[in-house]
Simulated scan of single mutants.
Amino acid sequence: MTRVGAIFSPYPNPPEAFHDAVQAAEAAGLPELWVWEDCFRESAFAATAAALAWTERLRVGIGIAPMPLRNVAVTAMEVATIERMFPGRLLPGVGHGVLPWMGQVGARVASPLTLMREYVPALRGLLAGDEVTASGRYVSLDRVRLDWPPARPPRVYAAAEGPKTLRLAGEVADGIVLDSRHTPAEYASMIAGVRAGRAEAGREGEPDIVAYVVAAFGAGSDERVRVELGERGVDDDRALWGSAAEVAAGVRRFADAGVDDVVLLPAGDETDLAAFYTEAAEVARLVA
């Protein structure tokens, strides 16, 4: 079944706005709320733990936290701690990070693909309760095992966009986070790359595909999307707008392309997150 969520963006929204946004999402019945960790804005893990503590049903996705910023053992400890406190409601994701930002903090790596190839399997192994030893270019672990692994390890998501990263993410991750501003046809091509990488690695089952899609609701929503994406955005199906029913119909087009989880990203001028999350929750009900 296709899932629908929404995003709390750290760009127009400061940390002190997060509590009310989370409460609004929970009250509306929104299934999922996603956050991300762009430098130098808001911590993903702190925000996620707070959101889960404030709610009873809401699932919270991290899409994504930059791998270069944290030793993989620290990331595993963060994920395991949150998952044990709030079982089944965390959707953790990691990615390369924006390279210039990684350079600013002295964490830029020469080969982001090598980092992902080493980091994601180590993270998955630690969360599974395995003792992990690794001696790679970027990940070095000597018989590391979590004392408190999750009872059921969550899926580990990886962000990907370029062809090589898409195939590698399919090979090493449980799920994939795809950025916004793509058409359903473009997503279908990207997902094919993910599945090819998974097949080449001999992994069974299907990856869970998450895609961010810019959205706006109500009167003038088409113009708001046009401002956000430019003229192309409205003309070639890179965003969703209109009533909840119209957005739900658009979600189904992305689902037909292979997206499992359509996460609605408020257009940049959105000032009423409570209203946006109410509409997004109605979209989720209509799609379900």
Rank of each mutant, 00 (worst) to 15 (best):
M1R: 10
T2W: 02
V4E: 01
F8L: 09
P10E: 07
P15M: 10
F18T: 09
V22R: 00
A24I: 12
A25V: 10
A25P: 03
A27T: 11
A28V: 09
P31W: 12
W34S: 07
V35E: 00
E37G: 03
R41G: 06
F45K: 01
F45G: 07
A46P: 02
A47R: 13
T48A: 06
T48E: 05
A50T: 10
A51T: 11
A51P: 04
L52I: 06
L52H: 08
W54V: 06
W54D: 05
G61A: 02
G63I: 10
G63A: 15
A65N: 03
R70H: 14
A73M: 11
V74Q: 08
A76S: 12
E78W: 12
G95S: 03
V98S: 09
V105E: 04
V105Y: 15
G106V: 07
S111N: 15
S111D: 15
P112F: 04
L115Y: 12
Y119V: 12
V120S: 01
L123P: 11
G129H: 08
R137D: 13
V139P: 05
V139D: 07
V139W: 13
P149S: 07
P150D: 09
A151F: 06
R152Q: 13
A159I: 03
A160Q: 08
P163H: 05
T165R: 03
L166V: 09
E171K: 11
D174T: 12
D174Q: 07
G175D: 11
G175P: 03
V177I: 15
D179P: 00
A188E: 15
V194L: 05
R195I: 04
A199Q: 12
E200C: 00
E204W: 08
V210I: 11
A211D: 01
Y212S: 05
V213I: 13
A215N: 02
A215M: 00
A215Y: 04
A215D: 01
A216P: 14
A219E: 15
S221K: 01
L229M: 10
R232N: 06
G233Y: 03
V234A: 10
V234D: 03
D235R: 11
L240D: 06
L240K: 00
W241Y: 15
A245G: 12
V247A: 03
A249L: 11
V251L: 02
D256S: 12
A257V: 05
V262M: 00
V262R: 00
L264Q: 05
L264G: 06
A267D: 09
D269S: 14
D269I: 11
E270F: 08
A274Y: 07
A274V: 10
E279W: 11
V283W: 10
V283S: 11
A284N: 07
R285T: 14
L286V: 11
A288C: 10
